[in-house]
Design a protein around this nucleic acid. Structure first.
Lengths: 356, 356
DNA sequence: TTGAAAGCGCTAACAA
DNA sequence: TTGTTAGCGCTTTCAA
């Protein structure tokens, strides 16, 4: 098999050629055609502008007839509003992010904003994408990523671009964030597992330097401590990946103190752990081992996995994010706020949650 | 559990407040600081501009010291180049697209372009996103979607924005496209399945009005016909979804003529079909039934599935796409070309491909 | 090789 | 309610 190319060269005709940039319509053209000033045309397209309803209707009609739309770039130069949300995403291989991204951009679009998405290189963190992101002067920088340096937020501050963290938060309360209450969720998972009679807990880390990972682990440890249970074993997956979870679970079970319940930093890690347990080690889940994930990505519900997991309140998180952006754009001074929304345990068959 | 908010109100200090848009540095500032004209500053940042190496170095140095970068928006107004690739994506729930998107935006970025991503509403096709996409005057519109109306390409043509289809093509050869050779791959799958002794072929459709679906099915049918085999049964999943594939497989097996081999329109559909076969119908795969997918998303390789599938040559497709974009931007007249790259069968355990 | 001046398409004072 | 005018920050002729 080899590459094929099909062109219309054979039966070429005039219409086959892509026209090189058609005529550019400007407000001046519409104005001339109507015998009004360009300001009038501009006003017709500006909300809350002082213009008679009649004139506006006339202008808009003629504009749409001619096929004119205002140039958003030229407009932005003056209004200092690009209506662009610069979104930096890392780790797109985690299905949680595409799911969030799709809903988030849709809600932003409904709120009259466009999304400019920047994907960070895998392995590296999101910071490298920020300078280019800032070049387009987005009205807000949205960080959908687990890792992030403080240099990045500083760069945004310097550029005067407000930053909003999604599914991530920093210690110093200097920057807005919307996350799931990972700490509390971790605690709850420990409680529930211990309540069902599990005795040897373990946690599989994604990236240890991310806030999500850290908070989930810390909550888990707090929960174990509060119940007077043994300290959970901690094993590193080396990243939020299926392969990492797979390998980490094998190491755990081969260790000196194999767990009877594993809480994973997120669903992708948990799916890897599940497959290692069932397909490679031949364990019965949840009889031999309980596995719990985090996020509730759509695959968690698939019958091959049927993963018990903590569902992030994604819709509420997105709703709040959009509201925060709108607030940022109206008032320009604001006290940064970190919001934590409660996660919810979704009980499926990968974990034994009743005493036996 | 309830929502928590944490602010720094308690220990509020001056530095807690987000600064409202810091000073805006312009070329004028750099020029003044150096005692040169703004044209000189501009030239320093323009490739191939007539300027002495020494002056350029001096300007760039001072600029970086001050933290100045040219305003890309203002620049675009004059150059008529935004360096933005407007990317419209539908169906982000199919993991194939995030994987492509991540790599594509990275390669575009290396080529000096930014990606503005627009997600179409689920269910609806990508067309609704196009008008807003065009507003930002992208240098090229990239369509990553299975469905697309001809009205959309017309709108782009009118706006003077070149269009490039990825993983999609239209009949009339009027628009550039880069796809896998779906027809040929479909043929190959039929051949291989029939060669291994399967007798009752079936195809599970995603969306019947998409070019990918159509070509894969048509190739499959051609292959069956060429081998003198019975016409494959066709069942509709109602969309490229896991749930659709799951339900479609059950209907197929409950039907009058249950197949011994199923070719699915893509991997997500195939994973649903696999789970239905194994988890619900208790079938042995591949002894009772062979299942083949399309795309080779990362999950296809997971041990729980180990899906035999046709791998799309994603890297080559992306490479070609970026090259085409660069060509589009240099020459403005071009004969549209449709490129088909060969897919490759990845043999895993979900299909019996040897005669027994 | 550099600078002065004229816009790109638009919005927002300011007048009328 | 509308029109006139002055820019937004930049690139690009044209002259020097």
């Amino acid at each position: 098999m080899s590459e094929k190319r099909r062109t219309s060269r054979g039966s070429s005709s005039r219409s086959d050629r892509v026209p090189s940039a058609s005529v550019r319509l400007t407000a001046r053209d519409v104005a001339a055609s109507l015998g009004v000033s360009i300001s009038t045309v501009s006003r017709a397209f500006t909300e809350n502008a002082v213009i008679s309803e009649e004139t506006r209707r006339m202008v808009l009609e003629e504009a749409s007839r001619m096929g004119y739309t205002p140039d958003v770039l030229a407009r932005s130069m003056i209004t200092r509003r690009t209506r662009i949300a610069g979104i930096a995403v890392a780790d797109i291989t985690n299905p949680f992010y595409p799911e969030v991204l799709a809903r988030l951009t849709r809600r932003l679009h409904e709120a009259g904003m466009q999304s400019m998405v920047f994907f960070a290189d895998p392995g590296r963190n999101v910071d490298d994408a920020i300078p280019t992101l800032l070049q387009y002067k987005p009205d807000v920088a949205l960080i959908l990523a687990a890792t992030l340096s403080s240099e990045t937020t500083a760069a945004c501050k310097r550029a005067g671009t407000p930053v909003l963290l999604f599914n991530r938060n920093v210690q110093d309360a200097q920057v807005e964030s919307v996350t799931c209450d990972n700490l509390d969720a971790g605690r709850m998972v420990a409680e529930v597992l211990l309540g069902a009679g599990h005795r040897r807990l373990a946690f599989i880390q994604g990236l240890s330097d991310t806030s999500t990972n850290r908070d989930r682990l810390e909550g888990f440890q707090q929960g174990a401590r509060a119940a007077g249970a043994a300290e959970p074993t901690v094993e590193a997956a080396g990243g939020f990946t299926y392969e990492g979870g797979y390998a980490a679970l094998k190491r755990l079970m081969d260790g000196l103190n194999p767990p009877d319940a594993v809480f994973c930093a997120n669903d992708i890690v948990a799916l890897g752990a599940l497959d290692a347990a069932r397909r490679e080690l031949g364990l019965q889940v949840p009889q031999d081992l309980s596995v719990i994930g985090f996020d509730d990505i759509s695959m968690a519900a698939w019958p091959s996995y049927d993963l018990t997991t903590v569902r992030q309140p994604v819709n509420a998180m997105i709703q709040l994010t959009v509201e925060k952006i709108q607030a940022l754009l109206s008032k320009d001074d604001q006290v940064p706020e970190q919001v934590f929304l409660p996660g919810r345990l979704i009980r499926r068959s990968s974990a034994r949650l009743e005493e036996r």
